[in-house]
């Protein structure tokens, strides 16, 4: 197996997961379970390609894509923050709606998938980092990714700073840990939750852009393939901490990369390798939960 290729793909596959994870962390810390990440990611992937195709301008496509995802974020927040709806159901609704809308619009447009190869040059979007790309072996792994992949890794640090060093980060954690405390000193709890969800929406838009526009210049209907849910698993494993959750995201990215690279030479059974990431996530999630619950002597389950 080509290890350089494997690690390059791990970073490449990890990037959208990292972006989703970083965006989802704030909602997780603010005690809103944002499982709408999956749908927002798909929406991001779809709208970025669609509007790039319609406007023939990548930047405009990206901008409109982020705006549309913000609207989705607001829809989701209205449902579960303002109207106090069940976030799991609202989140799944957003996911199903995203899939349905993409399928519906593709039908209306009369296309099987969206292809913007003529506008976007995938190879041209890859950024070669000078000096680093000269390092043998490692250069080929770290260098040559599209912009959003780099953004995702830089975002780990940025999100850590926001979470632990700013007022907003403190408020997010306060809202999640003791809502009453936040209310009693006049923190607008709902506003904090809205912002937390919206950060998730923007991040998953970026992840979607990375997935469709940047890497393939193509949108197909099932391309999110559970990345949003994988991100939720990583958030659970890392308790919403930016650094730790990102590490899990990279591990899950590696699992996907393994699946891709193993299946190349596996023939008809290659599909079986595609299950590796899912089983691995279940396994890691189980191990993390078992470790967390190792000392638990209280019977029963928490009210959720």
């Amino acid at each position: 197996m080509d290890y350089q290729r494997l690690l390059y793909d791990a970073i490449s596959c990890g990037a959208p997961i990292i972006l989703c994870v970083l965006g989802g962390n704030f909602a997780h810390k603010a005690n809103v379970l944002n499982i709408a990440l999956e749908g927002m990611l798909l929406m991001g992937a779809f709208t970025s390609v669609l509007f790039t195709m319609l406007t023939k301008n990548i930047l405009l496509g990206i901008l409109i894509c982020i705006l549309i995802n913000l609207i989705w974020g607001i829809v989701f927040s209205v449902m579960c923050v303002t109207k106090k709806g069940n976030p799991i159901i609202a989140g799944l609704a957003v996911n199903m709606l995203a899939t349905a809308i993409c399928a519906f619009l593709l039908k209306v447009l009369g296309m099987a998938n969206l292809n913007v190869n003529s506008i976007v040059n995938v190879a041209g979007l890859k950024i070669q980092i000078p000096v680093i790309n000269q390092i043998p072996f490692i250069g080929g792994i770290i260098s040559g990714h599209p912009l959003m992949t780099y953004v995702s890794f830089i975002a780990i640090f940025v999100m850590w700073v926001i979470m632990y060093k700013t007022k907003f980060g403190v408020y997010v954690r306060v809202v999640g840990e003791n809502e009453d405390a936040a209310v009693s000193v006049g923190i607008n709890v709902n506003r904090i939750r809205y912002i937390a969800v919206l950060i998730g929406a923007v991040c998953s838009a970026l992840a979607g852009i990375n997935l469709s526009l940047e890497k393939m210049a193509l949108f197909t209907n099932d391309m999110s393939a559970g990345i949003g849910f994988i991100a939720i698993a990583a958030i659970f494993c890392g308790s919403g901490r930016p650094g730790l959750t990102s590490i899990y995201a990279i591990i899950f990215g590696l699992a996907q990369s393994l699946a891709i690279n193993l299946s190349i030479s596996a023939g008809a059974y290659s599909g079986l390798f595609n299950t590796i990431p899912y089983f691995m996530i279940v396994f890691i999630l189980a191990v993390v939960s078992i470790i967390k619950m190792k000392n638990n002597r209280v019977r029963g389950f928490k009210n959720e």
């Binding site: 007022k167 003791n178 936040a182």
Partner: peptide, 24 residues
């Protein structure tokens, strides 16, 4: 100002951070 029967404190923050909550 009010001191509630059930304290409105955030356990994972420091005394200082709790006192300054909202007016950092």
């Amino acid at each position: 100002g009010m001191v509630h029967q059930h304290f409105k404190l955030v356990p994972s923050l420091t005394v200082c951070e709790n006192i300054l909550l909202g007016i950092e």
